[in-house]
Amino acid sequence: MMTRENHKPTVLFVCVHNAGRSQMAAGFLREIAGGDVVVHSGGTQPADQVNPVAVEAMAEVGIDISAQVPDQLSPYTVQESDVVVTMGCGDDCPFYPGKRYEDWQLDDPSGQGIETVRAIRDDIRSRVEELVGSLRPAQA
């Protein structure tokens, strides 16, 4: 049985199509936090594939998200997550009282060129780094 002392925080990234922003954020969190955080992502209207320009932008920084598949957002996953980060999906994203929510207003990389997606990627990276810092217990 898992106790509070060895509980790994669970973070869920949500965007409408689960094809760009949420996939990049999940990729960064997996890379930065390693196995210290459980990472999920989902969308309210998942696309058929991850945005190829987002895959290219992440590959430029050494993170491979090419095998990821957009996933349907599950109410169970929301309920089981310690932190839910929405990315501009507005009323399409469910809200559960008692959860820690963050809403990151990020441009949608869909249909954008690599220069724009790089800027979105870099913004996401800095936000994920801040998030990781807030999840780690204070050092004694």
Rank of each mutant, 00 (worst) to 15 (best):
A26H: 06
V55P: 05
Y76W: 10
V37Y: 03
V128R: 02
E115S: 13
V37M: 07
A33V: 11
G34W: 11
E31K: 13
G62V: 04
P137M: 11
V85D: 09
P109H: 05
Y96C: 10
E56R: 14
R125K: 15
S126Y: 02
Q45C: 02
Y96N: 13
I65Y: 11
M58V: 09
R30W: 07
P75Q: 11
Q49M: 12
P137D: 10
Y96L: 15
D122H: 01
V117S: 02
Y96E: 15
T10F: 03
G20K: 02
R125Y: 08
A26I: 09
S74N: 03
R136P: 00
M2C: 00
Y96F: 15
C93W: 05
C15D: 10
H17S: 11
P9C: 08
S66V: 01
S110F: 10
Q68G: 01
I32C: 02
D92P: 00
Y96G: 00
A47P: 06
E60P: 00
Q23C: 09
S110H: 12
G34E: 08
V78N: 04
F95A: 13
R125I: 03
K8E: 10
D123W: 00
T3W: 06
Q79F: 00
T86R: 09
M1E: 12
A59H: 13
M24D: 03
I124Y: 02
S74F: 01
V14P: 07
V132K: 09
T3A: 12
N51Y: 03
L73A: 10
V39L: 09
E31S: 15
D36Y: 00
G111I: 08
S41T: 04
C15V: 05
V16D: 06
C89F: 06
Q112M: 15
M24E: 03
M2V: 14
E130Y: 04
P52V: 04
P109S: 06
P109E: 06
A67C: 01
D91N: 15
P137W: 10
A54H: 05
T10R: 15
E115L: 12
L29D: 09
T116M: 10
V14D: 07
P46L: 06
V128T: 04
V132E: 09
V11I: 11
I65A: 09
A119G: 03
V61E: 05
